[in-house]
Design a protein around this nucleic acid. Structure first.
Lengths: 347, 347
DNA sequence: GTGGCGTCTGGAACCGGTTCCCCAGTTCTC
DNA sequence: GAGAACTGGGGAACCGGTTCCAGACGCCAC
């Protein structure tokens, strides 16, 4: 492993000049620069970021805090972040926080306190004011994905609006008996995503003058979770809704499977919407609201890099809300016309 | 941010003693050690791993090379690795390699060449001899998951055996018309997983004296991929197999969905097996062979840490093969008895 | 001719740790 | 009682870069 001193020696210059020539900062004559660069590539020299970060305080490394990597939304966000960071020459250090309090504080007090990362991106993790401030005091910008974080830039969709949009689509098709299968409030996610999606549903229903009592069915937000509860929702033909709004696509998939299992035909007997635009949504023909998680990851990286460049501790706490967009596929259709008793021979 | 010099000053000792007291190496009197530790915790001192690694050469950071984070197997492995590393006080730096050659060489020549990681875990990436040697020359142990890598320790299941096991289960149930839906050879994965699973299928069939012509249906290894091709496989009732071995669980799920769509009842009309034991396998009632990816991740970390401890460049290139185990659920049953013409009143 | 400015370069300090080497007691051994 | 062995601790070098500072040179203006 060659060090910059070797490069300097080979090029016949001092360490200082070699450093300037390679980093591009400060005055270096053109031919000197070329000589140094030549020597560097001849030796296969690669600067040690550890040594550099020791003095500059910059590590070219971003910490990502994420509760899951294996759920669709989180995995997509992570891939989006990783691609973008790699392109910018940054490393990504992964911190998979669980809900364990001890483990979370270990990450904050030990791992993130070490001067290893320049900034932190929190995906679907609601950081406390204290956690954010602790990071910012040490000069680390914080960017969040999934919901607002005080004093930090964040990127998210409007869960209430997305949910409302999905519900309104069903309403616009003439459905009035609509059930909502959503997240269990007991195992709430950060940013109370479950609650927001439920609220969007209720707002849309109320605006349409429809009752929402008994229309909410909580479950685990996964395909099996959706499947299991949908069997109940659809179980009794006499109280069967004509449409279901699922809080996420995987639940919607489970619902579609349950409907198939029960012989309920989608969309003829049952219209279904979700939120996500999961990669399998096309296969299931699911009408859904797009979340674009990769895009959210990219935006978070852009935001972080901007903060690192300006170097200022502006940290306005700006909230970027991505617009909600509905993708209509084949899981939704107009409600069957209710046979209205027509007065025969009426006047 | 306090440095070790501050701790030393507060404790009234030299930097050298402070370092020894905190790291536990070398002679330090007990009361001195306590004084230093007290000073450290009073100041909230946390050692800078960058500075330490500059002289020790150890970074307490492991690089993970992985082609996807969002596919079940890879996500599970990653979570397993992350948990285990965190517990051991190590950081995890993620390198999401795609199939782009340029990007891959960038990772090897730029990112991994920097002295940022102590070791590398490659998940489902078949490293070349050159790549492994380059890493090992710089003292970085390499551990692989998913298949053998020359000169590196690896952890994997036996794809041929797993595949054979899944097929033999169908054979043991009396099925003779068995199709295999597997990975497209054109978009082969590393370690030629697709080919191995196909071979295991063929070996089992041949051992049973059954033909394998026209029984292989290639597709993309995903739920939609399985769904699409299964519609074709099952399309013609007259040439319909009685059992399908899918190369992975997601394909099996797609196959189950396609069967439902076509009114083919599982398992009465069609038995299905997969490989993975995906978290949704229970919901689909899928009979499958377990892969235990989290366990593989844990084992890889254990192997890496062992290599780092022994510090020796033994690197035997040992291959750890996890045993294949079949989980029988409700997607498989005995083949319908073929009505054998019984001679009536025969002599 | 002198002063000022812009360009180019090298020496040296520095980032924050670890470790080598040396010194000073104390205890053990012959 | 002398020397070895062990324990405890400080000074300084070192890891591999970056950056401050000072000096040298060329050029222009006054």
């Amino acid at each position: 492993m060659s060090a910059i001193a070797d490069v300097a020696r080979l090029a016949g210059v001092s360490k200082a000049t070699a450093s300037r020539a390679l980093s591009g900062r400060g005055y270096v004559a053109d031919d000197t620069r070329l000589r140094v660069q030549g020597a560097a590539s001849e030796l296969g020299y690669i600067a040690s970021p550890n040594a550099a970060s020791l003095v500059t305080g910059r590590t070219k490394n971003i910490g990502v805090i994420i509760p899951f990597v294996n759920r669709w939304f989180f995995g997509e966000v992570l891939e989006g972040i990783e691609r973008e960071l790699l392109a910018a020459g940054y490393d990504l250090t992964l911190y998979n926080v669980t809900s364990e309090v001890a483990q979370r504080s270990q990450i904050f007090e030990f791992f993130l306190a070490r001067k290893r990362v320049d900034a932190v991106i929190a995906v679907g993790v609601e950081l406390s004011v204290d956690e954010v401030e602790r990071l910012q005091r040490t000069g680390k910008p914080v960017v969040g994905i999934g919901g607002p974080i005080p004093h930090a830039n964040t990127i998210a969709i409007d869960d209430v609006a997305a949910s409302r949009l999905a519900t309104e689509h069903l309403l616009s098709l003439g459905h009035t008996r609509i059930a909502h299968i959503g997240g269990n409030q007991a195992q709430q996610m950060d940013f109370s995503v479950h609650g927001k999606r439920l609220r969007g549903f209720e707002l849309a229903m109320e605006a349409a003058g429809l009752p929402t009592t008994d229309s909410f069915w909580p479950t685990e937000l996964s395909m099996p979770g959706g499947y299991a509860v949908a069997l109940q929702v659809l179980g009794d033909p006499r109280h069967r809704p004509t449409a279901i709004f699922a809080a996420c696509d995987e639940v919607a998939f489970g619902t579609i499977l349950a409907a198939q299992r029960l012989g309920v035909e989608v969309p003829r007997d049952l219209s279904i919407t979700g939120i996500d635009d999961h990669e399998y949504a096309a296969m299931f023909g699911l009408t859904t609201v797009v979340q674009a998680p990769r895009e959210q990851g990219r935006l978070a990286v852009a935001s972080v890099l901007r903060l690192l460049e300006t170097d200022a501790a502006e940290q306005g706490g700006g909230e970027t809300i991505l617009p909600s967009r509905l993708v209509v596929r084949s899981s939704t259709t107009a409600a069957a016309p209710v046979p209205v008793p027509v007065p025969v021979g009426g006047r």
